[in-house]
Simulated scan of single mutants.
Amino acid sequence: MRFELDDDQRDFAASLERLLAGADTVKVARAWAEGDHAPGRALWQRLTEQGLLQLALDATPVELCIAFEALGRHAVPGPWVESAAYLPVATGAEVEGIATLALPPLVPRALDADVADVVHLGAQPVAAEAVGALQVSVDRTRRLFDVAGPTPDVHEQALDLAVLATAAQLLGAGERVLADSVSYVAQRTQFGRPIGSYQAIKHALADVRIALDFTRPLVQGAALDPTRRATAAAKVAASDAAYLAARTGLQVHGAIGYTAEFDLSLWLTKIRALVGAWGTPAHHRAVLREDLLAHGAWA
């Protein structure tokens, strides 16, 4: 099967890319991490006007994946999976403003509950008193909060869409790290030649390219038919590929890659956090195993 975007989808992707490329998302993400949410709220409003909060109800999962890949590629902060993927489907209504949720045990804490206009436990809004203490994330743009209350019911279709959106975000982040790494090794010299000319560097980056290229059809296939098996497979592949991109990017950048001041750190920490978000790879491998045992490999 050959997957190609239609003209409207390509136009949507191009429009979104132009918006984010001109929005200085690195500055937005750094401000968000420091507790200054004004630039992030302004970008949220612009993306809302672009229709991102309507995609889950008014478009297809393909458009949703286009949007979330762009969000990952530009390290856009905020509870987008919660607001644009899970809650619209679970509640049957478009989210107004910024919303977040906890869905234990799979999503044990609510992302950015201190910024959100409404916090949910599952699909049900909760009072401010139910929001507990801030928990530290490896990604400083992700502020996680405990939410008190009974274990909520899971909306299965909404969950599949949220998992798919997270996979698309990982794919976009992995692509960004690879692109930045390729650019860096072409400029950085050692012993009088660009380090990208060394076979070991070429092979490491080629492995990342292959991993991302094998991931994209799984994400696209899940967008066309977002079953539990398809979204789990997409999340596993995207997690592994993006994590490989992060590890390789860190290695080829050398010492500067370890510094928080270098922009690469935004994607490295985001990838590490998203790998475990909306189900770890181990969780989704278990989902795949159970599905295969129940329905057979070719079901």
Rank of each mutant, 00 (worst) to 15 (best):
V185H: 01
E63S: 09
A38H: 12
R228H: 14
P152C: 01
A165I: 01
V76H: 01
P105N: 08
D7A: 14
V62Y: 12
V115C: 07
A56I: 04
V252S: 04
P39G: 03
F262V: 13
L20A: 01
S183V: 14
R109H: 12
V177H: 01
V26R: 02
V177G: 00
D58F: 09
L288A: 04
W298N: 12
V163H: 01
A238L: 06
L87W: 05
A158F: 03
G257E: 01
I271N: 00
S265C: 10
V95Y: 02
I271E: 01
P77S: 06
G174N: 04
Y258V: 11
E4D: 14
A84G: 08
A168H: 09
A70V: 06
V136D: 08
V81F: 10
D117V: 05
L250A: 08
A186Y: 10
D36W: 08
L266Q: 00
Q124L: 01
V119R: 03
L250Q: 07
A297T: 13
T189I: 13
L164E: 02
L47M: 10
L264M: 11
A173S: 14
A255V: 12
G172K: 00
D160Q: 12
V115G: 00
V76R: 00
D160G: 09
A211G: 09
A299D: 15
A42G: 08
R41T: 04
A297D: 12
L288R: 07
A85C: 11
D180T: 11
I195C: 08
I210R: 14
V252E: 00
V131C: 06
G72V: 04
A273M: 09
T215S: 06
G122P: 14
A130H: 15
D207G: 15
V118P: 13
A110Q: 05
R143V: 02
A179N: 10
L218F: 08
R30A: 04
T60S: 15
A84Q: 01
Y243G: 11
Q54L: 14
G149Y: 02
Q190C: 12
A245C: 08
A130T: 07
L293F: 07
K235F: 07
L71E: 02
D24T: 05
F145R: 08
R73M: 10
C65G: 09
L20P: 03
R193N: 09
G254S: 09
D6F: 03
T189Q: 14
A237P: 00
L288N: 01
D263V: 11
E82S: 09
E96Y: 05
L266T: 00
G296P: 02
H295Y: 12
V131L: 06
S15E: 14
Q124D: 15
Q220V: 06
V208E: 02
H253I: 11
P39D: 03
L52H: 06
R142H: 14
A299R: 11
